[in-house]
């Protein structure tokens, strides 16, 4: 089982993702420079958080033209697992691998704190180790997390179960009061139609050990491992 952590100029959560995969999960992992054009040796690719290309123009707008993105597209079309976290999510949106777009937080502030997210769809490959309705405590750290999509697109995503996480109260109540950034429908994470590409704003790599205040991120990592090991429920 071989993970790749894609590094764009300006990525800054790449080291954390690499550390969690190698030292916490104990799996093989390599960095993948954004100029790479072949990612076929990997089983799962992680697009980490950060500010690729200084977030110039729009978050992820320039990174999506990095050579590696075409390779990631082919990898995803072949069924490979791709997860984008924070800026990685934004890059997946700009590249069209996930539907919708990201806007500035409605409060205009960079928000860096723990939030609660509800698992809306506990399924392979991303959330099979959690239960639908379960609340995970995982931090966010972003300035552009205000997810938006046209109403017809959202409706289809709902029907297909593509909305995986929503911001909620500690008890799992989804309401505007618990929406940190203005994202439509409190959306914190979505997949593509096929389900093999995930984008989420919360950072599971920052919540994978108790000493950091939460290990709920492990539900996501362990779901990926279960899928790759063929142990999915």
């Amino acid at each position: 089982m071989h993970f790749g952590v894609v590094v764009f100029p300006g990525s800054n959560c790449d080291g954390d993702c690499y550390y969690v995969i190698k030292d916490v999960l104990g799996k093989d992992v390599d960095y993948v420079w954004h100029k790479s054009t072949d990612v076929s040796r990997f089983d799962c690719l992680v697009l980490p958080g950060g500010s690729s290309y200084g977030d110039y123009l729009r978050t992820g707008a320039i990174a999506r033209f990095s050579p590696v993105v075409e390779a990631i597209r082919r990898f995803a079309e072949g069924g490979g697992l791709v997860v984008g976290i924070g800026n990685g999510f934004q890059i997946l949106l700009e590249s069209g691998l996930l539907p919708g777009a990201m806007m500035r937080n409605r409060g205009l502030k960079f928000i860096c704190r723990f939030v609660n997210i509800r698992v809306e769809n506990a399924c392979a490959p991303w959330t099979s180790m959690a239960k639908t309705g379960q609340v995970l405590r995982i931090p966010i750290a972003h300035n552009e997390g205000n997810y938006q999509a046209p109403p017809d697109v959202l409706e289809k995503m709902e029907e297909r179960g593509q909305i995986i996480f929503r911001y909620c109260s500690p008890e799992g109540e989804v309401s505007d009061e618990f929406n940190p950034n203005g994202a439509i429908g409190n959306i914190a994470g979505i997949t593509n139609e096929e389900g093999n590409v995930l984008g989420l704003m919360p950072h599971p790599e920052r919540a994978s050990e108790e000493i950091l205040g939460s290990s709920d991120g492990l539900f996501i990592w362990d779901s990926i491992l279960a899928k790759l090991e063929g142990n999915t429920k």
Binding site: E94, A101, M103
Partner: peptide, 8 residues
């Protein structure tokens, strides 16, 4: 292609 995001 780049300068604007036609979705928003």
């Amino acid at each position: 292609r780049l300068l604007a995001n036609p979705i928003i």
